[in-house]
Computed example of a mutant assay.
Amino acid sequence: MFMKNKALILCIVGAGIMLYAGFQMLWTRYHERVTLNDIQSSLSQSKGNKNVPQKPFEPKKGEGFGTLTIPKLKKILPIVEGANPDDLAKGVGHVTGTSFPTMHDQIVLSGHRDTVFRHVGELKKGDSLIIKLDYGEFKYNIQKMSIVSSEETSIIHSTKPHEELVLTTCYPFYYIGNAPKRYIIYATPDQE
């Protein structure tokens, strides 16, 4: 009798965990869609393709301000200022303090491996990434990938006067819990 009750309890706990995880994923996708719709609406109202911000470009913390398109994955993702859990629940997080397109320095975008950056491991050298902001659209070509410790902080640094786009997510991709490593993608502006 005790073993039957124990098995029943384990099944209930397991089902509860699966329901919670499913709810979290749906909740994140909902917020991501809402943020993306707001950003796309805002970008469609912006004037022209100036490619240089008309004023200092300083999005507010938690604010959606642009999109990241990954053509190979057929993804258009919202970019939100900040990389804390609340920001990352809305989309790709721009690491505060790093640069923006045309500012000739390092731009760092972070995302969850199981939501926005779910298939970035499929990307290869030469694949393109496109950032769209209210002051223009900017294409980057992937140069390399690397895997580093989660403790590694030297990937975020100034690259002035050279512009570099860096995407970062947890690794391994299918790890349960806090992943011990980070998967980094480095891209440079397209020279077309």
Score class of each variant (00 low, 15 high):
Pro71Thr: 11
Asp105Asn: 12
Asp114Gln: 01
Ser99Trp: 00
Pro59Arg: 04
Tyr140Arg: 03
His104Ser: 14
Asn84Pro: 03
Ser146Leu: 06
Phe100Ile: 11
Ile130His: 10
Glu58Leu: 10
Leu19Lys: 03
Leu26His: 05
Tyr186Leu: 09
Thr115Tyr: 02
Gly48Leu: 13
Phe65Asn: 03
Leu73Met: 08
Pro56Gly: 06
Ile70Glu: 06
Pro71Ser: 14
Ala83Pro: 01
Ile142Tyr: 00
His119Gln: 13
Leu36Tyr: 03
Phe23Val: 13
Ala15Cys: 14
Glu163Val: 10
Gly82Pro: 02
Pro85Gln: 13
Leu129Asn: 11
Met18Ile: 15
Glu58Phe: 07
Gly16Cys: 06
Ala15Glu: 11
Tyr175Trp: 10
Phe117Trp: 00
Ile185Gly: 04
Leu73Pro: 02
Leu73Ala: 06
Thr169Ile: 15
Gln24Pro: 01
Ile79Val: 15
Leu8Tyr: 05
Asp190Gly: 06
Lys139Val: 12
Tyr175His: 14
Tyr30His: 11
Pro172Trp: 04
Pro56Asn: 06
Leu68Trp: 00
Leu36Glu: 10
Glu81Leu: 04
Gly82Met: 01
Ser154Ala: 15
Ile39Glu: 11
Asn49Val: 14
Gln106Trp: 00
Ser46Asp: 04
Ile142Glu: 01
Ile17Asp: 12
Met3Gly: 05
Leu26Pro: 02
Thr188Leu: 06
Ile9Lys: 09
Ser149Asp: 13
Gln106Lys: 05
Ser44Lys: 07
Phe2Met: 03
Ser149Gln: 06
Thr67Lys: 03
Asp105Cys: 05
Glu58Lys: 13
Pro172Ser: 11
Lys50Arg: 11
Ile107Tyr: 02
Tyr140Glu: 03
Pro161Leu: 10
Tyr135Phe: 09
Ile147Lys: 11
Phe65Glu: 00
Val13Tyr: 04
Ile147Tyr: 02
Ile184Thr: 12
Pro101Phe: 01
Ser149Lys: 11
Gln106Ile: 13
Pro101Ser: 10
Leu133Lys: 04
Ile156Arg: 09
Val92Ser: 02
Pro53Val: 06
Tyr20Ser: 15
Thr168Val: 15
Phe2Asp: 05
Gly62Cys: 10
Val108Gln: 00
Ile17Ser: 12
Ser150Phe: 06
Val95Tyr: 06
Glu58Met: 08
Glu152Asp: 10
Ser149Thr: 14
His94Thr: 13
Cys11Ile: 12
Asn178Arg: 09
Ala83Trp: 01
Lys6Met: 13
Leu77Asn: 10
Leu36Ile: 12
Val80Met: 07
Lys125Ile: 15
Ile130Gly: 07
Asp86Gly: 07
Ile155Trp: 13
His119Phe: 12
Asp87Ala: 15
Tyr186Ser: 08
Ser99Lys: 02
Tyr140Pro: 02
Ser154Asp: 12
Ala187Pro: 03
Asp86Trp: 04
Leu167Asp: 08
Ala83His: 08
Gly97Met: 05
Ile12Asp: 11
Asp38Cys: 03
Ala15Ile: 14
Thr28Ile: 14
Val166Lys: 08
Leu26Gly: 07
Gly136Ala: 02
Phe57Ala: 08
Lys55Leu: 14
Leu26Lys: 09
Asn37Leu: 11
Glu122Thr: 09
Ser44Trp: 03
Lys124Gly: 09
Ile76Lys: 12
Phe100Arg: 05
Trp27Val: 10
Asp134Lys: 09
Ile39Gly: 04
Pro56Tyr: 02
Val116Asn: 03
Gly62Trp: 01
Leu88Tyr: 00
Ala83Phe: 00
Ser158Val: 13
Asn141Leu: 14
Ile79Lys: 03
Thr67Ala: 03
Tyr135Arg: 06
Glu137Val: 14
